[in-house]
Nucleic acid binder design. Structure first.
Lengths: 202, 202
DNA sequence: CAAAATATTCTAGAACC
DNA sequence: GGTTCTAGAATATTTTG
């Protein structure tokens, strides 16, 4: 009841814990990375390193899912595989084919796998848009910005982005206000209905 | 009884948030829904209604992607199809097979498709302050402004101001959020106290 | 044609195991 | 840490006023 509402909506507050993220080099690569690297040494037509050896291509997602995945993982879902790739920071670098890249994932460089770590962000009270804003703020205060701000092109770009962001923030505020009104409306309706119920009970 | 009260009230809250924007009865179903419904009338072995006709099953994702999807959509990605299903509120109801369900998506009930609408915000009471479109953005990107901004100095100044403004907007959002939490807390407390009163009256 | 709605893509959140 | 399901976010693309 009332309590459940609170839990549902404020539950995330309980998880408010400071994160001591430690991206120190691990001694052994994550199993997922090893398996993915190994699977590329099969020299199959289903999946392989790309021409430059700095990314890999799943040439046939269907066969890859049905034949390759279950031999290395506990599933045969392409989407689960992709979810893992994203978790480890791989990017899809072609819109034409299933080609994924990570700076530290290269042909013949098995030793570099230890430098790839899982992305992990703590659950936070703040909505994602605020997170990204805060990150940006942190950046703007650094000296990095001092250097790049001298470039006219970058300035223009930043200007454009800032305006875009302003628009977004304005819309969010609009939404907030609307929601507040609706919450109030809901509250008042609830009070009415409860009073009617109480009357009937008398 | 408590639970029913809750459902009633949060149901109405959900209606509030959507009633302002769009969910009036449409005359014609979303293209995606029509296509998905049509594709199920092929009586194929790749995809079909389930036994009860209240959900559908993609029996062979690989063939579905390669053969079925491109005939109805502009792509052959299973994941894009699933993204659409989720956007329209379908749920995957089996862990064993690709079976998706929506209350208003049933065999022989094409007319019910008009009642399915695209999700804009969560059914949750809580914000997801995210975007529906509001229309107070006229003042932002005029081309006039673009020209003036070609001056380097002015650009710098404008960016500085934009950042200042951004900070202000972010603070406003924080305030809104706090207020919303208080409102909800109030609502929840009120519900509790009213229920206690009702119990005593019994 | 501009703006809104819908579609497609890529990535991430969160629950559960 | 892995797997699953769903959503966020950025673009494309289409539709509509």
């Amino acid at each position: 009841m009332g309590e459940n509402v609170m839990e549902l909506n404020f539950g995330s507050l309980a998880n408010f814990s400071s994160s001591s993220s430690s991206p120190k080099p691990l001694r052994c690569p994550a199993p997922f990375l090893l398996k993915t690297y190994d699977l590329l040494e099969e020299h199959s037509e289903i999946v392989s390193w790309n021409e430059q050896g700095n990314a890999f291509v799943v040439w046939s997602p269907a066969e890859f899912s049905e034949l390759t995945l279950p031999r290395y993982f506990k599933h045969n879902n392409f989407s689960s595989f992709i979810r893992q790739l994203n978790t480890y920071g791989f990017k899809k670098i072609s819109s034409k084919r299933w080609e994924f890249q990570h700076e530290k994932f290269q042909k013949g460089c098995k030793h570099m796998l230890v430098e790839i770590s899982r992305k992990k962000c703590e659950p936070s009270v703040f909505p994602s848009y605020l997170k990204s804003c805060s990150e940006e703020n942190a950046m703007t205060n650094s000296s990095v910005e001092e250097n790049i701000s001298n470039n006219h092109e970058l300035l223009m770009e930043e200007n454009k982005n800032l305006k875009k962001e302003r628009l977004k923030l304005q819309m969010q505020i609009e939404e907030c206000k609307t929601l507040e009104m609706k919450l109030l409306e809901c509250l008042s309706q609830y009070m009415d209905s409860q009073q009617n119920k109480a009357r009937r009970l008398c």
